[in-house]
Design a protein around this nucleic acid. Structure first.
Lengths: 258, 258
DNA sequence: AAGTGGTCTAGACCACAGG
DNA sequence: CTGTGGTCTAGACCACTTC
């Protein structure tokens, strides 16, 4: 314990990050290293306070991060129990956070077939929270997985006028479009909200997917926002039902409300 | 502002919930009512403190809830901006964690119409990760929302033999079945994994939902597990596409990254 | 310069689980 | 009973945005 506390205090020189985040990383590393095994109890809040010379608030903020990562569960009167030793469950289409969206983009291939700057129609302006007539960049393509020649979905993307000069988004993409925006413009995606619906395949989409018109499909709309809440990109994906399935895992939070 | 603050103080008599949660619900309601429109700034933390007579800690905890719900974004030097009013025609469920599953169960009504103990078929044993012949409790029902007489989904539930003696799960349910299991048996649900697919409505389901057979629908399979990873309950819900929409928000800071 | 949210401290009381 | 985590207060300093 003394060793990790020393390492922690050394890291306090790094002012780039808040203390609770540094403590969270320290604990994550210790769990990954096996210092605390699955089923073990982490030090209590009080112990963390004295060991690391921090207030209870800071210790709790750090422990919150572990709970949100699904590494530990907490219970009044019991303590903080380790339930998993790895922060991220690398594989499988597991949507637990933004990072999984990046992973998804590298695991699959998006082929952009059309790229044009368009003036928003009324309907489109409602979707992208803009005003009709604004000139957004509109992309259209299909997403493929591994060897399968059949696309898993057709994707339409709208990009805010400020980023419509984005380069290199025609043809095969092996990383996310929003990742491109982040790199080329220094913009950061802070939140993504998505909505999933079941709809009938339109004739046009059916042709592109080589599926039967009217068959069920998953329509996923993802809106990418910066930390100001401004809409940077909207992606609408229409998935052939038998080629795609959405999966996610939730871990118990610190609080249960009735 | 005086009215909402008064209503808030009245609700303080309700000790069933912490203050920050009550404040969060108050703000969510005010956003839904249009008191704050999309693009507006919410009161600052300082204003909330004085208006509601709470400390900054409590105000911040409440605002965190709104951020997690994707309703607002926050920025130092600027304020708390509304980015969504959560107003949709069809019932839209927001899933950010397990607690939202409890909330969903209390916001809607599940009517269980059939309850029987069955021996697993081969197909069922694969679904519930048991062996054929095991005797699980099988429930069947429909879920309703508010005044709408049309159900939003039909639900089938399988419960592990250890908990098949569960009581009070026939008729109208206003809390989650897994919540019942937790209370009656002291078992704790630690993780939930769910899978979402689009399928065609079978004739039987179409009749129950009073919808058209063959129309698209969302099929959601949720598996509830305890801390040991053992499967406690499996719920399969088939949603009429035009009555239900799945929504979730990812925030950048949800994960601890090394 | 003024005000915002982000971080942090040092206290406090509570419900709950365990011996 | 003691100790746990959950909630809450009243302060404080900071980086940042906006004027």
């Amino acid at each position: 314990m003394a060793r990790s506390a020393d390492a922690f205090h050394d890291s306090l020189l790094n002012t780039s990050q808040p203390r609770y985040m540094q403590l969270a990383k320290t604990l994550v590393a210790e769990i990954a290293d096996g210092k605390y095994a699955v089923g073990d109890l982490l030090p209590t809040e009080q112990e963390l306070c004295t060991q690391f010379g921090i207030s209870r608030f800071t210790a709790r903020e750090a422990l919150k991060k572990l709970v949100q990562s699904g590494l530990v569960t907490r219970q009044p009167g019991v303590g903080t129990k380790v339930v998993s030793s790895k922060a991220t469950s690398a594989y499988s289409q597991n949507m637990a956070g933004i990072s999984d969206l990046y992973q998804y983009a590298t695991d699959t291939t998006l082929v952009i077939e059309k790229q044009e700057i368009i003036a928003l129609t009324e309907a489109q302006s409602a979707l992208v929270e803009g005003t009709a007539g604004e000139t957004w960049l509109h992309l259209q393509g299909k997403r493929f997985v591994a060897d399968n020649p059949l696309p898993i979905c057709v994707t339409e993307i709208w990009i805010h006028p400020a980023f419509r000069s984005i380069r290199g988004v025609l043809g095969e993409q092996h990383e996310a479009i929003h990742s491109n925006i982040e790199q080329q413009f220094g913009e950061t995606i802070a939140t993504v909200d998505q909505q999933i619906d079941a709809i009938s395949l339109t004739r046009a989409h059916a042709t592109q997917l080589q599926a039967r018109a009217g068959s069920p499909c998953l329509k996923i709309v993802r809106k990418y926002r910066n930390r100001k809440g401004e809409l940077i990109e909207v992606a609408v994906s229409t998935h052939a039902a038998d080629r795609y399935s959405y999966h996610s895992v939730f871990n118990r939070e610190w609080r249960v409300e009735a």
